[in-house]
Computed example of a mutant assay.
Amino acid sequence: MGTTQLESVPEPKYWHLKTVLSDALDSEFAVGEILPNERELAARFGVARATLRQALEQLELEGRLQRRRGVGTTVAPPRMGVAVADAEHAWPGTAADAWQPVDSTEEAPPAALARLLGTEPGQVVHVVRRARKTRGQPVAAELLYVPADSVPGLAPLDAPAGPSRARAVLRELQQLRLEGQERAVELGSARADDAKQLDRLPGAPVLLVTTRYFADGRTAAVAVATYRADTCRLTFGESDGAGVRLLAG
């Protein structure tokens, strides 16, 4: 990497530095290569480390860089496509579903989720944890909140824990006639448990995809899927019948 004069540039220094670094990533670095440390980069470009960190954080958000525990900052691989939505009238856990069940517990959802579900604050619901990988890499983690009255036939002692219990909740949920879905996407920060599953640092940028499933004129379940925002891009519209699609890597 060469040096550049930033003092006379009218745009923010970190933004111009981001552009310079991005060009260097294309011409001088290979996928997976580790960047020099912050002290060396800041000295080379004649900027404060705070300015450098802003530029690196922006490149990470755009999916150009990855920060990994015990490794450092590396050049990110190209993005891979992952569909956000199943068919419009399909419950989680159907044959075409790419998610893998991890566990199922019974706990009270956060207040915002309780409002979406129409349950009383503090009321316990089933929480199904699922994970998704692409090419062996974790790309998303999901929490599916299911009120007890949506799965009335679920035996309390049937598959008490683990993936078997999660599959049992999903099978029972599929007995309802799905009337529709409502989906919202927003930018967020990875919580500690999500970050661990996604191999990211806590607080890393993520995309939160919240899906409400409707049956019998009410909200039957709510899923909150956390996708790695550093390697994701969204496209909207019909694509092979999948509707909204998320590209992740």
Rank of each mutant, 00 (worst) to 15 (best):
L207Q: 03
L207Y: 00
L207W: 00
L208S: 05
L208M: 11
V209Y: 01
V209P: 06
V209H: 05
T210W: 06
T210N: 04
T210V: 15
T211N: 06
T211P: 03
T211G: 04
R212L: 07
R212E: 00
Y213Q: 03
Y213C: 08
Y213S: 07
Y213R: 02
F214H: 13
F214D: 02
F214R: 13
F214E: 07
F214N: 08
F214P: 01
A215I: 09
A215L: 12
D216I: 03
D216T: 03
D216S: 14
G217H: 07
R218H: 12
R218C: 11
T219L: 09
T219A: 11
A220V: 09
A220L: 13
A221C: 12
A221N: 04
A221H: 04
V222R: 02
V222W: 01
V222I: 11
A223G: 09
A223Y: 02
A223S: 15
V224H: 02
V224F: 03
A225Q: 10
A225W: 02
A225T: 13
T226M: 09
T226R: 05
T226V: 15
T226N: 11
T226D: 10
T226P: 13
Y227V: 15
Y227S: 11
Y227C: 14
Y227R: 08
R228A: 12
R228L: 13
R228Y: 01
A229Q: 12
A229P: 15
A229I: 14
D230T: 15
D230H: 07
D230L: 14
D230M: 15
D230W: 05
T231Y: 00
T231N: 08
T231P: 11
T231E: 07
C232V: 14
C232G: 06
R233F: 09
R233W: 04
R233Q: 10
L234Q: 05
L234M: 14
L234V: 15
T235I: 13
F236I: 15
F236P: 04
G237L: 05
G237F: 01
G237N: 02
G237I: 08
G237C: 05
E238W: 08
E238D: 12
E238Y: 05
E238A: 11
E238C: 04
E238L: 12
S239A: 06
S239K: 02
S239H: 00
S239I: 10
D240R: 06
D240V: 10
D240M: 05
D240G: 11
G241A: 01
G241I: 11
A242C: 05
A242I: 13
A242N: 07
A242P: 00
